[in-house]
Amino acid sequence: MISALSVVAAALVAATPVTTPAGASQDEIRAYWTPEAMAEAVAASDDPHPDGVSWTYGTESVRNVGRLFMEIPGGKKATCTAAVVEAANRSVIATAGHCVHLQAVGGWMKKLLFAPAYDKGTRPYGTYVAKSVAIAPAWSEREDHKADFAFVTLGPDEQGRSVQNVTGGRPASFAPVPGEKTALGYPFVKPYDGETLQYCSGPTTPVNDNRLVGGEQLTPCRMTNGASGGPWYARTADGKDVQVGVTSARPKEPGLENVAWGAMFEGTARELHQHAEQLK
């Protein structure tokens, strides 16, 4: 599993994926996200507590993880985390559903741009504009956190390359994988600034809360906003590193301040991934 210990490079109704166009040309979106615009991207709330630990195990093993920039309805810039997952079209990232569609801000995010291995303003593997987004109706219509994941199909980089050909990717597992998990993300809210990759690693337990039935809880982990959508990795019994979910939320109620919640991939996620990887 990707960690400090080992560095490696209620039932849902079957989902009908929702696809939305980027709303502008790839060149226009890439031009929109200047370094200055990226610096303006903000998270949705404030939390002064320290969370997570800086990733210090080299960039090669996590170069498929990056920052996802978006414009929310109304023009405000925002940021989440996403990761490249293996796909037939070699152009798919996984992130949180609320990073691409959120009713509280008016629905669909716009001008999505992925910057893998982003670090202190650098974009060593180029940038990739979102072409389409697949989310479950359980998220877009009801915001059921069990379905708080999305699979985004990307266009090529500035040199015409597919993202997986440049950064590699990890397979997604749509069945439970027991044991330790590692969550990675770019938390933005203080004491962080979104400029470097952070992580939490350790055993997980089932979420005992109706807001995320079927989710898993990682303790200790207090990465702030901006880490949403970041990958949760696990190692299978045969030694394969796989993505099993994404960071969905960090509750703030007493007794829960030191945990992160992950939305785990399952049958609905599998359908969304299959839809995303069929797109060109």
Rank of each mutant, 00 (worst) to 15 (best):
P206E: 04
R170P: 00
G169L: 03
V177D: 08
V189E: 15
A183C: 06
K190P: 14
R142C: 00
F149T: 05
Y186C: 13
P187S: 09
R142G: 00
V129P: 06
F151E: 02
Q198I: 09
G168W: 00
T122L: 07
P203A: 10
G160D: 11
S201E: 01
P206L: 03
A150V: 04
G179M: 03
G169R: 05
K131A: 12
P171F: 01
A138Q: 13
A147P: 09
V177L: 07
R142Y: 06
G160E: 11
N210H: 08
P187R: 11
H145T: 00
T127W: 08
Y186R: 12
S162R: 15
E141Y: 04
N208L: 11
S162P: 11
A130M: 10
S201K: 00
D209Y: 06
G160W: 12
Q198S: 12
P203T: 01
F188E: 15
L184A: 07
A150Y: 03
Y186S: 13
R170N: 10
P137M: 07
P178H: 07
Y118M: 13
N208A: 15
G185T: 12
K190W: 07
P124A: 06
Y199D: 06
T204W: 02
A183K: 03
Y125E: 02
D119V: 08
Q164I: 07
P176D: 07
A172M: 08
E141N: 12
P124M: 04
A138N: 05
V129K: 08
G179C: 09
R161Q: 14
D193E: 12
R170A: 06
T205F: 04
H145R: 10
A147H: 02
A175R: 14
T196H: 14
P137K: 03
H145V: 00
G194M: 14
T122Q: 13
N208G: 10
S140Q: 08
A136I: 03
A147W: 00
P206W: 00
Y199C: 02
R170C: 01
R123A: 10
I135Y: 09
A130P: 08
S140I: 00
V177W: 08
A150R: 09
P187W: 02
D119P: 04
P191L: 05
P176W: 05
G179V: 00
E141S: 11
R142M: 01
Q159L: 06
R161K: 15
N208P: 04
N208E: 14
V152F: 05
E143W: 01
L184I: 09
Y199S: 11
K146L: 02
V166P: 15
L154C: 11
Q164A: 15
N165K: 13
D148N: 10
V177T: 11
W139M: 09
P191A: 07
T127C: 04
I135M: 09
Q198V: 09
S173I: 07
E195Q: 15
Y192D: 14
T167L: 10
N210W: 08
S162K: 15
K190G: 10
F188L: 14
A183R: 01
I135T: 14
D119Y: 11
T122W: 00
G160M: 11
S173L: 04
L154T: 05
P203L: 05
A147Q: 02
D144N: 10
H145Q: 06
I135V: 15
V177F: 05
P191M: 03
E158M: 06
V152S: 07
G169C: 06
V189F: 12
F149C: 04
V133E: 01
Q159M: 07
K120W: 10
Y125V: 03
G168T: 00
